[in-house]
Amino acid sequence: MDITALLNALPGGVAQGLIWGIMGIGVYITYKILDIADLSVDGTMVLGGAVCITMLLKGYPMWLSMLSATVAGMLAGLATGIFHTFMGIPAILAGIITQFGLWSINLKILDDKANLAINAQKYNLMAHSGSLRTTDPANPLPFYENTIFVVAVCAIVIIGILYWFFGTERGASLRATGCNPNMSRAQGINTNVNKVIGLMISNGIVAFSSALLSQYTASVDINQGRGAIVIGLAAVVIGTALFDKIFKNFALKLVGVLLGGIIYYVVMRIILWFRVDTTLLKLFQALLVAIFLAVPYWKKGLSKYFAKPVKKGGQPDAKS
């Protein structure tokens, strides 16, 4: 096992971790803020890339392709939101239905092909895996074209926008909706509209991340979203489990999710470096996420035993 092979793989791990960290921020909005597990993201994680790459290939400018990918994701979120609120379908099922339907839509966008490649140089992709480091010393890569830099800037802009939004009247009402829907309605908040808005924002961000991922690999694959929710959740749960104690500010919590995504991918690179059977990788991922999801539950259980230190010579507190 060659350590330089690992070191060479790390920038790629960081870049992919950042991209999936952005996706994790989308998941954070539904899972943590709205208290909804939204499975449509497995479909949205293909949709964004499909829209972006197809448009780039047709000659549309980068900004318009990225914007269209994001809007497409928001429409997918709108569909899930309507299934859930207007049609009363439980959130998990609503997400699965959207994901199922997106399969056909994604294939149609890809012109009935299972994957589509794009030439990174010819189309000047903004986040290609080839732009991680200088390969030709005669022609050094400026830092602002470095994929890690570009993706990090995207992430920071998204965090900035979300930080602003969740501080507005509407954003605050969204947080209240997820925290206590009864109270929210009593305060005149239309919880259904807010859930739809939240799902749209979330899926918009996921589609944006999908577009970045497709540029990173210079391709779209109809399967690139399979299990996306698990990776997004991994970024969220690793981020919150490790950084919740230090990051109190909302923007920092989102940075925690980004870091969660990076840690997850770097760990995966290290596992791969050990030459584990890649077929088993998904099993490792599933177990890792399950364990991190269990952390808050275990913490609660343990605190029952450790929370009430009995003072020396004193009575244990009678009030519960």
């Binding site: 507005t168 009247e169 954003g171 605050a172 005149g188």
Partner: peptide, 19 residues
Amino acid sequence: ENLALAARRGKFRSLMPGI
């Protein structure tokens, strides 16, 4: 923040600052 939510009861929730 809870008080600010209540202060906006019956009002459209805009993109103005929440508090």
